[in-house]
Simulated scan of single mutants.
Amino acid sequence: MGRRTEYVIMFDDNVRKRHSHQTEKGCVQYFVVQLEVKVEDVWKVVIRYDCAHGFAHIDTYDLRGNQRKTELDLTFESALSYADWDLNENWEKYTQKFLRGEKL
């Protein structure tokens, strides 16, 4: 079993990033990084980067929970780095669009 890293970063009172990844011998085996917004006391996923289906991809959601999947042509290591960078840089924009009902 490899090394697992998990943490949560609060961007605002009602906005957080959840990060989890597992490595083995320095290689990323699994990852999920997602932006969540609290709406009426329920945490909802806005955007999620992961490799749950054996390939790196982004899932974007709307307020009703409808999902859209976009494949990333990146290694797991690159996708994980990009996910962290993207959510750190764009969380405010993504949160505003999500709450206004706009597509991400």
Rank of each mutant, 00 (worst) to 15 (best):
Asn14Thr: 11
Thr95Ile: 08
Asn90Arg: 02
Tyr94Thr: 08
Arg64Gly: 08
Met10Gln: 15
Asp13Arg: 15
Arg18Tyr: 02
Ala52Glu: 15
Asn14Pro: 11
Phe98His: 00
Glu36Tyr: 01
Glu77Cys: 03
Thr23Leu: 04
Val45Cys: 03
Tyr7Asn: 09
Glu89Val: 02
Lys44Asp: 07
Val8Gln: 00
Gln34Met: 05
Glu40Tyr: 13
Met1Asp: 00
Val42Pro: 09
Thr95Leu: 11
Arg100Cys: 15
Asn90Glu: 00
Glu36Trp: 03
Asp59Lys: 08
Gln96Phe: 07
Leu99Ala: 02
Thr75Gly: 10
Leu87Asp: 03
Cys51Trp: 08
Ile47Leu: 10
Asp73Trp: 11
Thr75Asp: 09
Ile58Trp: 14
Asn66His: 14
Phe11Ser: 03
Phe76Met: 06
Val15Arg: 00
Asp73Lys: 14
Asp62Asn: 15
Glu92Thr: 07
Gly54Phe: 10
Ser81Met: 06
Arg16Phe: 04
Leu80Asp: 11
Tyr61Thr: 08
Thr5Met: 07
Val42Trp: 06
Asp59Ser: 14
Val39Pro: 05
Phe31Val: 02
Ala56Thr: 03
Gln29Val: 13
Thr5Val: 09
Thr23Pro: 05
Trp91Gln: 12
Gln96Thr: 11
Tyr61Ser: 04
Glu24Tyr: 13
Val32Tyr: 06
Trp43Tyr: 13
Phe76Asn: 05
Phe31His: 01
Asp73Gly: 14
Asp50Phe: 11
Tyr61Lys: 05
Asp13Asn: 15
Thr75Tyr: 08
Gly65Pro: 04
Leu74Met: 15
Lys93Cys: 01
Thr95Glu: 15
Val33Trp: 09
Leu63Tyr: 04
Ser78Cys: 13
Thr95Phe: 11
Ala56Pro: 03
Gly65Tyr: 06
Tyr7Asp: 04
Arg68Leu: 07
Glu92Pro: 08
Cys51Asp: 15
Val42Met: 01
Val8Ser: 06
Tyr7Gly: 07
Ser20Phe: 01
Asp86Met: 11
Leu80Val: 13
Val33Ser: 11
Thr70Asn: 12
Tyr30Trp: 09
Asp12Cys: 11
His19Asp: 13
Glu77Ser: 09
Ala52Tyr: 12
Asp50Lys: 12
Leu87Cys: 00
Asp13Phe: 09
Val8Asp: 02
Gln67Ser: 03
Tyr82Trp: 11
Ala56Glu: 08
Gly26Tyr: 10
Gly54Pro: 07
Tyr82Glu: 05
Phe98Lys: 00
Asn90Ile: 00
Arg100His: 14
Gln22Trp: 04
Ser81Phe: 04
Leu72Thr: 12
Met1Ser: 02
Lys17Gln: 11
